[in-house]
């Protein structure tokens, strides 16, 4: 065997090993992508299904984010809808009241700049971009208090923008909901 042939043989070996490794790498990646898709459909959060727009400077005049409509409402099907806004430098309602063990839809938007809602210890995490409405499904297994900081820089008071979420028992929530209006735990 000449030196040149040996060279060619070893090049082929190298190419074969590489191909094997590349195949392996592709399998890893495809596996991960499938895992993510499966988890998304069956047990975790999914991106909001629609893009909805709104005018941030007129939220308080009409539409679903007027002051009297902010807070939690028990829908006829037993689900709960929470409407909230972020603004420099607070959330309204500043304390969100929700029941445990109930499918909840959070609908929120920003009245001025980009904010974010993050409920610590949960998967609830969404941006509030002025002009657009954010929607996220939530579900709390346990009652208790959660912190809800703003997670995006929103100018110089950002460090003071912390809200709260209070999860209470399902029946207690239903009791409070009887009186109508929108619920929150502000001032409690």
């Amino acid at each position: 065997m000449s030196a040149e042939e040996a060279h060619r043989d070893s090049a082929e070996v190298a190419a074969r090993v590489e191909r094997r490794w590349a195949t392996f790498a592709v399998i890893i990646i495809v596996g991960m992508a499938l895992l993510a898709a499966f988890a998304g459909i069956h047990s975790a959060t999914m991106p909001q299904p629609r893009v909805e727009t709104t005018d941030p400077s007129r939220l308080h005049l009409s539409g679903e984010f007027v002051e009297s409509n902010l807070g939690s409402v028990l829908e006829t099907n037993g689900n709960v809808t929470v409407r909230a806004i972020g603004q420099q430098y607070s959330f309204t309602p500043a304390c969100i009241l929700v029941p445990a063990d109930t499918p909840i839809t959070l609908r929120a938007t920003s009245a001025d700049v980009v904010h974010g809602i993050l409920i610590q210890g949960t998967n609830v995490n969404t941006m509030l971009v002025p002009g657009y409405i954010s929607e996220q499904l939530m579900h709390f297994a346990k009652t208790g208090d959660y912190l809800m900081p703003c997670q995006e820089f929103c100018s110089f008071g950002h460090e003071g923008m912390w809200g709260k979420v209070k999860v209470i028992d399902k029946t207690e929530f239903a009791d409070r909901a009887k009186s109508g209006g929108r619920l929150s735990c502000v001032g409690q």
């Binding site: 590489e18 490794w21 590349a22 992508a33 299904p49 974010g116 971009v129």
Partner: peptide, 30 residues
Amino acid sequence: FADPQVGAGFKFIHSAFTALVALPTLLTVF
């Protein structure tokens, strides 16, 4: 991903392509 102004379909496409970017790195490591 957490933004309200991008459609879910495009988020999925970008997510899948992001997975692909691991490929050149895995090849490089080898």
